[in-house]
């Protein structure tokens, strides 16, 4: 583990997270309640309260490269119970945005799943669950994902085999297109 050079640290990182999230990170007094309540703590490489601390001391690389930000499900436990009313889940969300924008994704499968989901929405206007699964399996190479569930699901008619596109799907595609244009500016 490296020694954190606090005075040399990236102040702009702390400021950027504060600006994006609209949260006052100085308000975090490191009580650890977010970590205590987080259902995903067991799966995290860096606990959420530690992420808050690392943001406070400007440790951009450490934070953007951690796995935890991809594993947060935005369940709102942390936000709801924070004694300082910090929207911790919001902060996690924004850090994830920053990691994505920096081209970082330490949990590639999660990112691919998200991308596949949004691809499906962009293409059809709604999520086509079967198509999403196929796309995810193709991109990750994990062709056996949930394959054991197929015999349970298919007879129940839960997964339509044909996509259901909406009439205004071009409007949805346009949202994505404009989003990419704004982002690339």
């Amino acid at each position: 583990m490296n020694t954190y050079k606090i005075t040399a640290a990236d102040n702009t990182f702390t400021a950027e997270v504060e600006k994006r999230s609209g949260q006052d990170l100085n308000a975090c007094y490191q009580c650890g309640n977010c970590t205590a309540g987080c259902p995903f703590s067991f799966a995290y490489d860096i606990q959420v309260s530690n992420i808050m601390r690392l943001v406070q001391i400007g440790q951009r690389d450490k934070v953007l490269q951690c796995h935890s930000i991809w594993l947060c499900a935005s369940c709102q436990s942390c936000t709801t119970r924070c004694p300082n009313n910090i929207d911790v889940a919001g902060v996690m969300d924004h850090i994830r945005h920053m990691a994505r924008e920096a081209g970082l994704a330490t949990e590639r499968k999660v990112k691919v799943f998200v991308d596949s989901f949004l691809d499906s929405v962009e293409r059809h206007g709604r999520v086509y669950e079967m198509g999403l699964m196929v796309s995810y399996m193709a991109k990750t190479g994990r062709v056996f994902t949930d394959v054991e569930l197929a015999p349970k699901v298919l007879p129940k008619g839960k997964l339509p085999l044909k996509p259901h596109s909406i009439k205004g799907k071009e409007q949805i595609a346009a949202i994505f297109k404009r989003f990419r244009e704004v982002k690339s500016k």
Partner: peptide, 21 residues
Amino acid sequence: DWSCCGSTPAHTVNHVLSSAL
């Protein structure tokens, strides 16, 4: 002709995109 809200994936990518959907 309602469309998908974007669910969790959208807000994990960008809040403006998510809200637009």
